[in-house]
Design a protein around this nucleic acid. Structure first.
Lengths: 228, 228
DNA sequence: TAATGAAAAGGACAAATGTCCCAAAAGGAG
DNA sequence: CTCCTTTTGGGACATTTGTCCTTTTCATTA
């Protein structure tokens, strides 16, 4: 992680439509923190040092389960708020966050949050809007998780990473073990599912890559479920 | 539903430690709305008329899935906030709410929410605390849903309804069809699970009732997952 | 009381998914 | 290049869960 001292960039980020109504004052005691691809942003269980607003790039939110595997919760892109649960509930970091591409955050120190922003109507409203939105999608995801098959979850995974891939960049992971773990299954079973999709000519696998031939079919299989 | 005109009771409810720091002013344009056992409080998809604070009793939050079944999201008791997602996101009611025993709510009209309380720091903070708490539990529930077996979910269901049952009251539902639907499975399979538990002398079934013999075993099976 | 219909119980089978394991392929390190 | 580790691919089998049906039980009403 590097801290970027660039007031122009910071002002530019703060000028985003969702943020400018919140951060009106000229002076901002904020930092830009930049994480490179694959860098860990938050480690589950540790204490958080402040509030993070993701303003660029793409991150992967996972959580570990009893088995020690990482289960995918969702992908995030700008604008996302991170640290809300932790700071409001005063609990340790709830999930593991990794940058899947170079990602910038605006970092706001927790004392500034507690002393200033937690008394700021605009900020509270914005935070609340984000929290309830997350809650809404989480509730939906929860019930879908209960009912969706591995095939559906795999298709959702593909759709989600597809949209996140900027033009020209390859898909982040064609690694069976990681995908299996993320969508909560075993490599063995994921293999079976992919085998079937290859047989049906919906996807192709050439070493180290998954190539989707029929996106429409994959979208259909995903049933609208997205990890974001 | 009946609207209770009882200022003493209303003041009593508002004096609850979580509420009194929010609602300090003497004059409160609030109502008490009382729902009897099994009465529907919210119908999924309809528009909400205001904000509801559950101050007594017990409610069941469900959501319907493609199959037309009702899937259990959680049980709620006092103090719970309802309508937060709907009012903040301005969306229709997201889930079906039924009173499982006589339940009182403080009702706050939406115009008062939008005009007054959404500008009230204490209220916003409280709302945020509730929303992030829900978010925290929902995230956990979501990943458990993905991995938990029907046996686990059934045990969780039993544990949850057990705690909610006031002394002397019988368990709300010993109805196989409803339980199966709530925990997201079929009666056939629920039957098998119960059969096994009866065989292992963990539970007993005498017509129309499920009697748990070994709560410790059920708690163990539930793996700590709770619908609340 | 007899007829009727909903709910419960459960057999038979199929589909989805997990576990265990082993062999082949691919990547790295020396 | 060779050896070693990791990943992939997949066979064989067990477990979980769903589907489809039939029978039984129970409650309700004509």
């Amino acid at each position: 992680m590097q801290i970027i001292q660039d007031n122009v960039l910071c002002t530019y980020y703060l000028n985003h439509k969702e943020l400018k109504k919140v951060f009106t004052s000229e002076e901002h005691p904020f930092q830009i923190r930049r994480y490179s691809r694959n860098e860990v942003v938050f480690e589950e269980g540790e204490d958080i040092d402040g509030f993070y607003i993701q303003v660029s790039g793409r991150t992967k939110i996972t959580t570990s389960v009893i088995t020690g595997k990482a289960l995918l919760l969702r992908f995030c892109s700008a604008i996302s708020f991170m640290g809300d649960i932790e700071l409001v509930q005063k609990v340790p970091i709830q999930s593991h966050v990794t940058a899947v591409e170079d990602t910038d955050f605006i970092f706001i120190d927790q004392t500034y949050i507690y002393n200033e922003l937690m008394k700021d109507i605009a900020f509270l409203q914005q935070l609340l809007a984000h929290a309830t939105y997350k809650l809404q999608t989480c509730t939906t995801a929860s019930r879908i998780n209960l009912l969706a098959s591995v095939e559906t979850r795999f298709a959702s995974y593909l759709c989600t990473v597809r949209n996140g891939v900027s033009f020209g960049k390859e898909i982040q992971t064609a690694n069976s073990m990681e995908i299996a773990s993320l969508i909560g299954t075993t490599t063995r079973h994921l293999n079976r599912i992919m085998e079937k999709l290859v047989f049906d000519k919906v996807i192709e696998k050439n070493k180290k890559e998954i190539i989707v031939i029929e996106w429409t079919k994959i979208e259909e299989l995903s049933g609208g479920l997205r990890y974001e």
